[in-house]
Simulated scan of single mutants.
Amino acid sequence: MMLRSIAAVGHDSEFDEPPRVPALERVEKSVRPAVLQAISSIQERYFEPITLAELASEVFVSRFHFSRMFADATGVTPGRFLTAVRLFEAKRLLLTTSLNVSDIVCSVGYSSVGTFTSRFSRAVGMTPTQYREPQVAELLVAISPTFQRLPPLRTLRAAGRSCASLQTGTGVLSMQLDMPRGSAPAETLVGLFADPVPQCGPVAFGGMANMSSGELTIHGVPAGRWTAIAVAQHQPGAGGPRFSIGYQGVTVAPYGQSTARVGLRAPAATDAPIAITLASKQSPFTQRMLAAQRPHLRAVA
């Protein structure tokens, strides 16, 4: 497995604002080129300490207006997008190179190994060293404009309850998935996350093989407000996209069945890159014990 390189930059607290669901179609066509230019600048200068003011000045708008139009186009603030790109690159290097952590820290723009390690561990749920375990790559879900990866459902079944850090819940979520027009049936996975740009595993997920537009039900979902991210890897030979993705905010009741609907589309340049593993940070011995006790994922069809 090989993740293609994508740039990463630092995080600046001045960027922090509540994230929003992506809605590029709401953005005026006149401002879309400015957002795409800013994203391109992020990807080209990820190792530099880029600031919000610099990005805004490059597209000739005020910081306030830039933050607003960027969030409208991408669903997240500039700071959240920069952090997502940076962590995507760090994960790529951890999984595909033999660079030591200090070298990776420098290459993604951090100046302190300790700061990077603590931020990475807090966001991802495992240390950079733990992230290099083979099962992390085997159970990786990656989404970026240039690279998409979905682990086979049979691999998820074989991994059993060692997958992710699933929480115990009593809710049931029925998701109506609308695939892109003209697309072929797909191996499909839907995860529920606390963050719209997740860095660690979902609280619950479900999957289905050979799926067209239709319903996918996830059991054992914790009550609360989550971001549902649906990814589909389509069979070759049709005119639609080979890979599609969809985002939707969902509310799950503590008991009974909740419903939601999400439309999938081809990945776009305005999507913040995501790389999350469904592997647990537990020891291999504990993983084997749990897998033996529950050989099939409850949520994966």
Rank of each mutant, 00 (worst) to 15 (best):
F88M: 10
M175N: 02
A230T: 10
G249A: 10
A159W: 09
I274V: 15
V31G: 08
R261A: 12
G256Y: 05
Y247H: 15
L177W: 09
V250P: 02
G171P: 08
W226E: 01
G182C: 02
Q282T: 04
V262W: 08
Q176K: 11
L55D: 14
A194I: 02
A223I: 14
S118C: 00
R132C: 00
S111C: 05
S144R: 04
S112C: 08
R32G: 02
F193N: 00
F205C: 10
R86E: 06
M126F: 06
S244I: 05
S162Y: 10
A8M: 01
S174Q: 13
E28G: 15
V105E: 10
N100P: 08
E48N: 01
A123S: 14
V113Q: 15
V203M: 09
D178W: 02
Q257P: 00
V172H: 07
T129V: 05
R92K: 15
A73D: 05
A84L: 07
R92D: 11
Q130G: 06
A299V: 02
G263S: 14
G256Q: 08
S13N: 09
F193G: 00
T74M: 02
M2C: 04
L192V: 06
C106R: 05
V203H: 11
D178H: 08
T168E: 14
P267Y: 09
L264F: 04
V105Y: 11
G160A: 13
G75H: 04
A292V: 00
M69V: 10
T251H: 14
L264C: 10
T77M: 12
Q148N: 01
A299P: 04
V85E: 09
F147K: 03
G160L: 08
L297W: 04
S283F: 10
V9A: 10
R92L: 07
I50M: 15
M2V: 14
G201N: 03
T168F: 07
A34H: 10
L153T: 08
I276D: 04
A137I: 04
P236E: 02
E54H: 12
A228C: 06
G206E: 07
A223N: 12
V197Y: 14
R4E: 13
